[in-house]
Design a protein around this nucleic acid. Structure first.
Lengths: 148, 148
DNA sequence: ATTGACCCTGACATGATGTGAAGGTCCATG
DNA sequence: CATGGACCTTCACATCATGTCAGGGTCAAT
């Protein structure tokens, strides 16, 4: 299969298919005499795997780990489950962080008359010194596609 | 004040202070004869404003809008409130998206025995074709610091 | 042979932020 | 005065996933 066909079959852009090859998530396919990439139909499945995992917010590293487990017919399903559960917690943590932001913002909003007068506790609150969220508690991570 | 003092007073890195100047969120300060930036103490307040707004997940554009409202002594507080409420909804939407991912993932997890056997519905589920999340419904946006 | 659809590589852009280099300045101490 | 350390300057590169564009080759059908 040519890259265009694979792209259509999976919904993954040609750009990203090549990118996944570059970063090692997809194996380098054979090349035809003209230099075109020639994919086995198996590649469609693997790309779907990657795309689905990305849609679920897994990082590239996590996807790599899942793929090597996928490639390993002998691995225990508990290994997979462990990764999935860690990731689920991470998702919960991030969702909670967003909700916390929202809560803080709504507190500010609650004090604001929202009429034609110019005084506004939202702006006043933003200008105040406040404890910055301590980075030690957070894990920098990738942003799930389209969510942020 | 030198940039180092401002940085310490606000917790914003020198790098980012210069960056905010570059993108127009902070006005270009006077320069001393030696070329050093010389900040009025007022800048500390403005930088705190920016930092707090960032911590609440506002985009640079939104912060710019809030700052110009802040600079405008005559503006109605309703304008500020409107921006804040739109942003609060956005935060809620993103949090919900993360929770939805988590739900999908936990569905897969639920089917997995998590023992030493190799068959795993999580991996099988990831390899399956499924509807990709439709982008039309989502708004590409910035990632709140440290959350993602 | 031309045309349109396909493929190739490589490069630039996004956005917030860090890091590092290369160089000037200021001040305190010897 | 000289030296060192702490400070400042600008510029550039890296991150990460993704898009897009440019310049150039290929294939298939007319």
């Amino acid at each position: 299969m040519n890259i265009g066909q694979v792209s259509k079959a999976t919904g993954v852009s040609q750009r990203m298919i090549r990118h996944y090859e570059g970063i090692g998530l997809m194996p380098s396919p054979d090349r035809r005499d003209n230099g075109y990439r020639d994919y086995p139909s198996r590649s469609v499945e693997r790309l779907r795997f990657i795309a689905n995992a990305r849609d679920l917010g897994f990082s590239v590293d996590e996807i790599g780990a899942l793929l090597s487990l996928w490639d390993d017919r002998e691995r225990a399903s508990s290994e997979v489950k462990a990764i999935a559960l860690v990731h689920a917690e991470e998702l919960a943590r991030k969702a909670a962080a967003l909700e916390a932001m929202r809560g803080t913002l709504l507190e500010l909003v609650a004090g604001c008359s929202g009429d034609a007068r110019p005084d506004c506790p939202i702006l006043a609150g933003l200008a105040e010194e406040r404890q910055r969220s301590p980075q030690e508690l957070t894990v920098a991570h990738r942003r799930p596609k389209e969510v942020m």
